[in-house]
Structure formats: structure tokens, C-alpha cells
Design a protein around this nucleic acid. Structure first.
Lengths: 196, 196
DNA sequence: CCTACCGATCGGTAGG
DNA sequence: CCTACCGATCGGTAGG
């Protein structure tokens, strides 16, 4: 029988999704079983299905949530009145902060999205490419105006976005520098590397 | 009955390992099945076991092979008579070239090593940490000599090594710049970012 | 939310 | 190198 969704249901679903993000990050999507997840949440595996439709729905929700946040942010940056370098810096700082505060979901969305099912897989892949094109285009404008070195823009995008995923190692490190220091160091190295 | 290994055996094993690297890269270690692999090689799944001991042995061989290559190289660099910046540049260029020419194995070793079984998992993890410490130490010497900006060395390592993994996107891109151009662009951005 | 259970698929073995 | 097959584990459902 169809159940009416209550606020409890929604928060329970969010608890499951958060636990799934942590599990998918640690074991990888395929290696993480629904029995693992159930144990984390404190119920039997079958009970999860009162709140979610499927394992793949969990991955999908994580990826869509992250993608929407980044998509919204880059649109704000595009409309800003500032230099190209400042725009790239704003994008870089956003990526760093998301990778620090929203770690598990951002990580999973970045590394496990290939396990999405169609048509979500194609949608995600396309949006990801469009996002990178937008960043490349901002860099190209910066090159045109003489703020940025005459480098290959797609290569610069690739470096910046992948460098951020290294924050995984920072999270795992014993003697952590502060989040602010991490951000400052990354910006110094990467933005100076671009600047003419 | 025990079989005596012939040269044929060894090359057949190498063919299987190469195919495994490609498959593990495309699907991820857990999602890649031995039946998938058998199909790629052109035999039945059971026949693979005449040449290999297990699925996990394949991953292990890939990771050890890659780890040894990088380990050997960094020792050469450490013993070179040159500046810290030049050493970092040599390491960066080696990573780029390996990621271009030995793509599948390097990728798998970087992204799928968490699925290694003990004691290989711990060994690999330790060696990886030691490797990064060596790079950080070279950077710190460069800072001390005033060649490199006063940045946090572990953060610089994290950026450089992860940036290289972005070459994955380069491999997949339609309009590729040449490998030489890619290398030149990456070195320009990253080494200039470090240099004082 | 649980117990009970299903069909599919997995890595791997026996035997030839 | 193949056919035949096993025990384990998977995602998910039925029914209460």
C-alpha cells in the first residue's frame, strides 16, 4: 500500500543518504553493500527499502545534489563583475571549501559517478563537460585580456579541478594544517601558476 | 598436476594482466568480473586460472609494477646533482609521461589500490606515504634554499601529484593537444606556481 | 521495521 | 583450454 511521506520519512532518507555517501567513499559504490549500509544506519537491509527505491537512487541523489550546487555557483561567478583571474580564484576557492565541508558527497560525486545508470549517467557526463567548458572559457577570456599566461585552457582546468581532489589526502593526514591554511596554500600555488 | 612455466605462459599472463588493467580502469576493480576479462582475452572464465592465481593477484601485480617504477625513479632523482626545483620538475615530468604511456596501469594503481588485500594493502599504503614524504622533503629543501616559495610542502605535493591524474580527461578528450604540449603546459603552470 | 526468501551473479574448483 | 558446477553474496521483494 502506498504510504504518505512525512517529515520523518524525509529526514530518515537524508540520514540514509549521508551514511551511503560515507560508505561509498570508503569502499567504492560497487564494493559497498546494502547490508553494510543497513548496519551503519542500525536496521535490517530490507528496511532500507521503506525509505529509498534502490541503491542506485542513493548514488543518483548524491551526484545530483553536488552537481546542482556547483552548477548554481558557476552561474553566479559568470555574472560577477571582476577579472578573469578573480573568477578562476572564486571557482577554485569554492571547490576547496566544498571538498572540505561537504567531503563525502563531493568525493563520491567525483569518483563514483561512472556507476550511475542511464539516462542519469549521460546527463551527468554532459553537465560535467559543460561545467569544464565554462571554466575553460573564463580562463581563455583571462588570457585574451593578458591577465593569464598563454597556456592551453583545458589543461589548466584539468590541473585546477584535479588538484582539489587531493584534499582527500589532507583529510586523512595526521598533522593537519588548518582549512584556511590549506586554502591559502592551494590558491597561492595554482593562481600564481596561471597569472602572467 | 603442477605445470612447468614456459615463456608462453609468462607472455599469456602479461596479456591477461594488460587486459585486466584496461578493464579495471574502465569499470573499477569490483565491477569488473572475471567473465568480462575472459571475454576480452578470448577464453572461458575458468581458463584464466591456468595462468593466474586469482583476481586479486592481477590487481596486486599491476600495483607492484607501477610502484616499483616510481620508487626506482625517485631514488635516481634524489641522487641527482641539481636544484630542488629541477628535482621537482623531473618528478613531475616522469609522472606525466607515465600517465601518458603507461596509462591503464598507472590509473588503476592510483585509483583502485584500496581493493588490495592484506598484507599488500598495508605495504602499498606505507610505500605511497614514504614516496610523498620524499617529494615533500625535496620541496622543503628548495624552500630552505630560497628557490621555492614558503608554502606548505605536503600541500604542494598533494596538488602536483593529483593534478597529474587529470590526464585521464586528456586521454578522453576529442581534440587532444599533443603529449609534448600537455607536458609543457602542466610544467609551466605547476612549476611557476612553486617558484619564488 | 522485521523474518524469510528469491533469482542473479560472483570468484573460483574439479575433472578431463 | 573447456564443460559443469559450487558456495557465497548481492540487490531487492513478499508479507506481515
Amino acid at each position: 500500500m502506498a504510504r504518505i511521506k512525512t517529515t520523518q520519512d524525509i529526514s530518515r532518507k537524508e540520514v540514509i543518504t549521508e551514511a551511503a555517501a560515507t560508505l561509498f567513499k570508503e569502499k567504492g559504490y560497487k564494493a559497498a553493500s546494502m547490508r553494510d549500509l543497513a548496519e551503519q544506519v542500525g536496521v535490517e537491509a530490507a528496511s532500507l527499502y521503506n525509505h529509498i527505491k534502490s541503491k542506485s537512487e542513493l548514488l543518483h541523489n548524491i551526484c545530483v545534489q553536488v552537481a546542482n550546487d556547483f552548477w548554481e555557483h558557476i552561474h553566479e561567478v559568470e555574472n560577477k563583475k571582476c577579472t578573469g583571474v578573480e573568477k578562476v580564484e572564486a571557482i577554485l576557492r569554492y571547490h576547496i571549501r566544498e571538498m572540505i565541508t561537504n567531503y563525502e558527497k563531493v568525493y563520491v560525486s567525483d569518483r563514483e559517478w561512472k556507476h550511475l545508470t542511464e539516462p542519469y549517467l549521460s546527463n551527468f557526463h554532459t553537465q560535467r563537460r559543460e561545467y569544464r567548458k565554462k571554466v575553460a572559457s573564463i580562463i581563455e577570456q583571462g588570457i585574451h585580456k593578458g591577465e593569464i599566461k598563454p597556456i592551453d585552457a583545458p589543461t589548466a582546468v584539468l590541473i585546477i579541478l584535479h588538484a582539489v581532489s587531493g584534499i582527500d589526502s589532507w583529510h586523512r593526514s595526521k598533522q593537519k594544517i588548518s582549512a584556511a591554511e590549506l586554502e591559502a596554500n592551494m590558491v597561492t600555488i595554482l593562481i600564481d601558476g596561471l597569472r602572467k
